[in-house]
Simulated scan of single mutants.
Amino acid sequence: MAEITYRNASCIYESADSLAVDSLNLDIEDGEFVVLVGPSGSGKSTALRMLAGLEDIDEGSISIGGVDMTDVPPKDRDIAMVFQNYALYPNKTVAENMGFALKMRGIGADERRRKVEEAAKVLDLTEYLDRKPAKLSGGQRQRVAMGRAIVREPQVFCMDEPLSNLDAKLRVQTRTQIAALQRRLGTTTVYVTHDQVEAMTMGDRVAVLRRGQLQQFSSPTELYDRPANAFVAGFIGSPAMNLLPATVTDDGVLVGNTVIPVERDRITSLHSAGVTSVTAGIRPEQFEITDGAGVEAVVELVEELGSESYVHTRVPGSGNQIVARSLTRTPARLADTIHLRKREGTVHLFHPETGERVGD
């Protein structure tokens, strides 16, 4: 079994002012695909390198299958790494690259060839086994790097932004292949990315990190539907959730000159807690453009995406920016004054100072 447990795991770099990873707690199930996501400097790659033994655990512990890995060297952790750069030997063929780690472990040529051919079949690399890396595309090279990890049959795959060097179309194709491959193999996988769309489409669960601290660890739908704080709300979703300063009223929250209705029990909860102002979070798809009712806003940009449009606006006076999705083409023009009315759906409420979710 390859359950992974982070228990108050921390790491600080020499001469740094703060922890790179600060008391991280995660329980990753056997066979689960978990994604670590966050902006640059959030500690996601450091957390992965701690698991692989490439960075020291300064406090706390990390275990694999119930075994504490604190003093276990990387080569004895039964982990296979896939990096952002492919790290292939240019003078070796695809087959030799994939089988090199097995050769170093003393596995015979026949057994190596069998494992390499099996992995190549899974990755659609059979016809390229005798080629050198220079004769392959970026996506094919990344699949070779994946194959090199697969033939080892490790307890855990550690993937550190493996798609960053690919173009946009190839990234979408390859991430689908990686997710499907992991489901087929059933190997516990920890995957690092800064791309929240990649995280949402690939992971069974996603851990959102910020400044070395875990913000939320949930399924993609839970992150989208019930973000734990304003940071997660603004980070998950494309375009990001609208986060607007609002005043609590008896009927809802006042944004600009418009009251947006909120359920009575949530308003009562806010009043009971003495909360008079909040940050209201509303997804772009929850706004619709109307002729007169709703929040008045001036159009600053229209993104035409074919099947839908995103209208970027600014509320006069307050300066608040609101993005709304429209399913019709050219719903407004630059500098037009429009009105945005909230459709059905949850208004997410966050404390204006701490950013934590309130009113539930």
Rank of each mutant, 00 (worst) to 15 (best):
R7S: 12
S18M: 08
L19P: 10
G31C: 13
F33H: 09
V35L: 04
K44E: 12
M50N: 01
E59F: 10
E59Y: 10
A80R: 00
P90A: 11
M98P: 09
F100M: 12
A101T: 05
L102C: 08
M104Q: 14
R112F: 02
R114K: 15
T126L: 07
P133Q: 12
S137N: 05
G138Y: 11
G139T: 08
R141N: 02
Q142Y: 05
M159P: 13
D160R: 03
L163H: 02
T188D: 05
V192R: 09
T193Q: 06
E198R: 08
E198T: 07
A199Q: 08
M202S: 04
R205W: 09
G212Y: 04
E222S: 12
R226G: 00
A233R: 01
G234W: 10
N242R: 07
D250T: 06
D250S: 14
I260K: 03
R264E: 15
T276I: 00
V278N: 07
A280W: 01
I282M: 02
I282A: 01
D291R: 10
D291A: 15
E304F: 13
G306N: 11
S307V: 12
V311Y: 04
V315W: 09
P316L: 10
P316C: 10
G317T: 06
G319W: 10
N320H: 14
Q321L: 11
S326Y: 07
T328E: 15
A332G: 02
A332K: 00
T337E: 11
R343N: 09
H348W: 06
T354M: 08
